[in-house]
Each structure stands twice: as structure tokens, then as C-alpha cells.
Amino acid sequence: MSLYVTELRRLFKRRLTRLLLVLLVLGLAGVATAFSYSSHKLSPAVVAEAQAKADADYRQATKDWERTVAECDAAAARGEKTEERYGPDCGRQWQPQPEMFDPKWHLPYQFDFRGEFGNFIAVFAGMLALFAFIVGASFVGAEWSTGGMMNLLLWRPKRLAVLATKLAAVLSAVLGVSIVLGALWTLAFWLIGTYRGSTAKMTSGAWQSTAISGGRALALVLAVAAVAAALASLGRHTAMALGAAVGLGVISEIGIRIAVGLAGVRFGDRYVLSTYAMAWFEKQWKLLDYKSCDFAQGQCNPKELLITWQDSALVFGVGTALVLVAAFWLMRRRDIS
């Protein structure tokens, strides 16, 4: 227990951890603040103003239509051909209707907590994952490269326990930061919804769904932290984790896309990691195979492949487990020189 507390203390004593934490808080606060300015509460006056604008648009359109019909009738009376220019029956069939002028078009953007907070959970998870990756990688990587790990092993000559404790410290720190900042993030958007948007229809079911989305985001952030720490331990340097992340990003998002595109693989995006990240956040992600369609024959519904969050759980879970097992195996096997 003392080692765990020590490692937790060591983690928060690190300058990089503190700096990144400050940047993370500032970044999240910046996003929330900027977004709060873009959302406007739809008060009765704002709605009435939009309705008035819609009515005015309707009246103007009706006036224009009446004038056009009158011009068409006059031209017809002069014996001119009107159908090509004004349509059949001088376009009487196109008389504007009030329902064609939706007042919503004149409403400013209003944040809807129930409908949109899910997207902001993904934004939050993305920023937190970046924080978790750098902190996790550098906490283990810098310990190796500066000799801290060796010093620690002279005090606690149990390699697996030391690595596991460091990992536990990183994960619990990321978990704690995520919970605290996640609660503040939710509160911030709840307040934006309350004062500059809408929090309507937030039933207990909606809250439950939000909590599950938050849980999935948290799991991804923890997996990122664990993989970063494990990669840094494998390479015994922070750069190993950062290099692996960049390499994986390039291979997965560019290399594989090009390769499957050239090979004509159907649903090639199922081999790309970001597909599974999208499915993880959105619960499911639909891939479309446009090659299955012959648009010359008219409308076509392309074939679909549904990637579910369970598929993502399998991919990310197996990937994380493999990296962790490799890190612990090498920690046990390799000499420290």
C-alpha cells in the first residue's frame, strides 16, 4: 500500500502531470465557455420574433406568387407561350402555404442536453485520452530512462508488483481526474442547457443512457492510459509509446485505408481503428458498400455492415490485454542494465 501511495504522490509531483492537468482543465473550460456563447435560450419573445419573420416571409412569398401569376395571365392574354417560363396553369399550383415557412429557420441555435450531450462526452473523452496517454507513457517511460525504475527495484525487488503498482497509480489517477472533471463537465453542460439551452425530456432513462455513454468513454480513457504505460515499459522510454501511437495512427488511418482501397476490399473501414472508436461512442457504426450498387439502374440501397460497441469492446479489449501481457512478460524476463 505504501508503494501505491508513493507512486501516486510521485505521479502528481511530476511537472508534466501538473502542466497537462492545468492544460486539460483550461481546454475543457475553454470548450464549454465557447459553446455556451453559441447557444441561445428560446424565450417566448425569440420564438415570437421567429414566427413573425416566418409570417413575413410567407406574406412576401404570396405577394411574389400573385404577381407572377398576374404577369403570366397577362402574357397569355397577349398570346405568348407561358408554360415554359411559368409552368402549367401559370404556376397556380405553387401557391405558398404557411406551413412551408417554418419559424425554426429563424431561431438561433439552442443546445439540447438530451440530444447533444453525447457528442460532448466524446469530446471530453478525446481530450482526456490524450492527457491519459501522455501522463501514462511518461510516468513509466521517464522512470525507466532516468533510472528511477532501477532505484525503485533496489528497494522493492518485485518487478511485477512494481510495474502493477505503477500501472494502478496511473489508472487510479486518471480515473479520479476523469470522475471529477466528468462531473464538472456534465454540470457545465447542464447549466448551459438550463440557462442557454434546453434540458427537456431528461428522464431517468435518458440519464441512465448518458451514464452508460460516460462509462464507455471512461473505459476507453483507462484503456489508453494502460496501453501507454505498458508500451513505455516495453520500450523503457516514453518515446516508445508516442512512436507506437503515431505509427499505429499512420498505419491504421492511412496505410490500411490505401491498401484496402487498392485491393478493392469490401467494407475496408472495418480494419481501421477509428471505425471501432466511432462505434464505441455511437453504440453502433454503419459501413456502406457503394460498390454493391449500380446507380445506372436507378436508386440503390448499398449493402451495410454494422459495427457494434460490442465489436469495439472486443477489439480494444484484446489489444489492451495483449500489450499489457507483453509488458509484464518482458518486465519479468528482461535484464535491467
Binding site: 508513493t6 504522490r9 509531483k13 532516468t146 533510472g147 532505484n151
Partner: peptide, 26 residues
């Protein structure tokens, strides 16, 4: 024990470095 050249986390003070080791060693 000290083995080879001394290596410590450069941004910690000596007191922090030893304090963390002392805490780890109870």
C-alpha cells in the same frame, strides 16, 4: 546499494527523491 552512475528524476529535489524512497520503504 548504488549501481554505476547515480540516476535520479531531474525535476525532483533531493528531499523529494529521498522522501519518496523513504515512503516506499516505510
Amino acid at each position: 546499494a548504488i549501481v554505476e552512475s547515480p540516476q535520479f528524476f531531474p525535476h525532483f529535489s533531493a528531499r523529494d527523491t529521498l522522501g519518496l524512497l523513504a515512503q516506499a520503504g516505510e
